[in-house]
Simulated scan of single mutants.
Amino acid sequence: MSAKATPSLDGFIQTKGASRPDAMQQRGTSSSTAPEPEAPPAMPVRPAQAPEPRAKALTLRLSESQYQRLRRFAFDRGLSHQDVLEQALMDLLGRSGS
């Protein structure tokens, strides 16, 4: 049986106090310079709105049946519980004229 050659770690281990190498060649790349990575796509710009004041936390207590109804409602519409409750509250406040 032939003995496996142990790979050399030369160039990988940095001695204490030595300066950090500027660049290390990665496996699979040639010694020529690598192409520049593509810029990520631009994020859509939202229209300017007045900044919202800092969010406040609120505790809501629901019975088990109310919670299950909320879960089903949110799941069926692909919404979070936060989204459902915010929309419901804004609708209620809008109707009352506040």
Rank of each mutant, 00 (worst) to 15 (best):
R69N: 15
A48V: 03
D22G: 03
P41I: 10
T29W: 12
V84K: 09
R72M: 14
K56W: 00
R71Y: 00
E38T: 11
D83W: 07
P44I: 07
F75Y: 13
F75H: 15
S8I: 01
S8C: 10
P37F: 06
T15Q: 11
A39C: 02
Q68G: 08
S19L: 05
A42M: 11
Q82V: 04
S31G: 10
V84G: 05
P35Q: 10
S80G: 06
R54N: 02
K56C: 00
L85D: 04
S65F: 05
E64P: 01
R61D: 03
E38K: 12
P40V: 01
Q49W: 01
P51V: 06
S32L: 12
T59S: 14
Q14W: 08
K56R: 03
Q26W: 06
M43W: 13
P51C: 03
S30G: 15
F75C: 13
P44Y: 07
E38G: 11
P21F: 00
P21M: 01
K56H: 01
S80Q: 07
Q25S: 09
P21C: 01
L60V: 15
A42Y: 01
R77W: 00
D83K: 15
A74K: 05
Q49R: 15
G28R: 10
A48D: 09
S65G: 03
R46I: 01
E52I: 03
E38A: 14
S30N: 12
F73I: 09
P47E: 10
R27T: 11
I13R: 10
Y67Q: 08
A48L: 06
G28E: 04
V84R: 06
D22R: 02
M24F: 00
R27K: 15
E52V: 03
Q25K: 12
K56Q: 04
L85A: 06
R61K: 10
Q66T: 09
R54Y: 00
T59K: 15
V84T: 08
A74R: 10
G28W: 02
S80W: 13
P51Q: 07
R46Q: 02
R77Q: 14
T29N: 08
R69D: 12
E52K: 10
R77K: 15
P44H: 10
P44C: 11
S32R: 14
P44W: 07
A57M: 08
F12C: 02
P37Q: 08
P53S: 09
A74P: 07
L85T: 05
K56P: 02
F75Q: 15
T29I: 07
L9Q: 12
R61A: 10
F12Y: 02
Q82H: 07
A34Q: 14
S19H: 03
I13M: 06
R71A: 12
T15D: 05
K16H: 03
S31F: 07
P35Y: 07
L58I: 09
S32Q: 08
R61V: 06
D83C: 11
R71S: 08
A34G: 06
A74D: 05
Y67G: 01
E52D: 07
T59Q: 11
R27F: 08
R20W: 02
S80N: 09
M43G: 07
